[in-house]
C-alpha cells in the first residue's frame, strides 16, 4: 500500500487512471481506527477509567484526569478532527478520488 501511494505522488498526471478505491477505503478505515483509539483514550480513558492512574500528576489543585474530563479531551477532539480533515484531503489526491 505504501509503495502505491508514493508512486501516485510521483506521477500526478496519471491519477485519474490509477484510481484505487479499495486502497483509499482501507487507508481511510485505518485512519478512523487510530483516531477513534485516541478519541476513546483521552475521554473514557484519561477522563474516567484511567483517572486513578493519573492521580499523582497535579494540575491546578486537582489531578490530570480531572483536567482531561473537563477540558483536555475537548482540545484533543479538536486536534483529531482537523488532523483527519487535513490527512484525508491529502489522501483524496494521492488516490485520485478527490472532487473535480
Amino acid at each position: 500500500m505504501a509503495d502505491n501511494t508514493t508512486n501516485l505522488k510521483d506521477v500526478p498526471q496519471a491519477k485519474k487512471a490509477a484510481q484505487d478505491e479499495a486502497g483509499y477505503w482501507a487507508a481511510n478505515v485505518r485512519m478512523i481506527y487510530w483516531s477513534l483509539a485516541i478519541w476513546a483514550t483521552v475521554s473514557f480513558g484519561f477522563g474516567i477509567l484511567l483517572r486513578p492512574l493519573l492521580k499523582g500528576i497535579e494540575v491546578g489543585g486537582t489531578d490530570l484526569g480531572f483536567w482531561f474530563a473537563q477540558q483536555g479531551s475537548i482540545l484533543v477532539f479538536l486536534g483529531l478532527i482537523f488532523f483527519y480533515a487535513w490527512r484525508m484531503n491529502k489522501l483524496d489526491k494521492q488516490y485520485g478520488v478527490e472532487e473535480d
Binding site: 477513534l36 478519541w39 473537563q70 477532539f77
Partner: peptide, 19 residues
C-alpha cells in the same frame, strides 16, 4: 467532576460526526 460527561459527550460526538 461527575457531570464532566456533558462536556466530553457533547463535544466528542463531533469526532464521530466528522469521521
Amino acid at each position: 467532576y461527575d457531570n464532566s460527561s456533558f462536556l466530553m459527550g457533547w463535544t466528542g460526538g463531533y469526532v464521530l460526526l466528522a469521521l
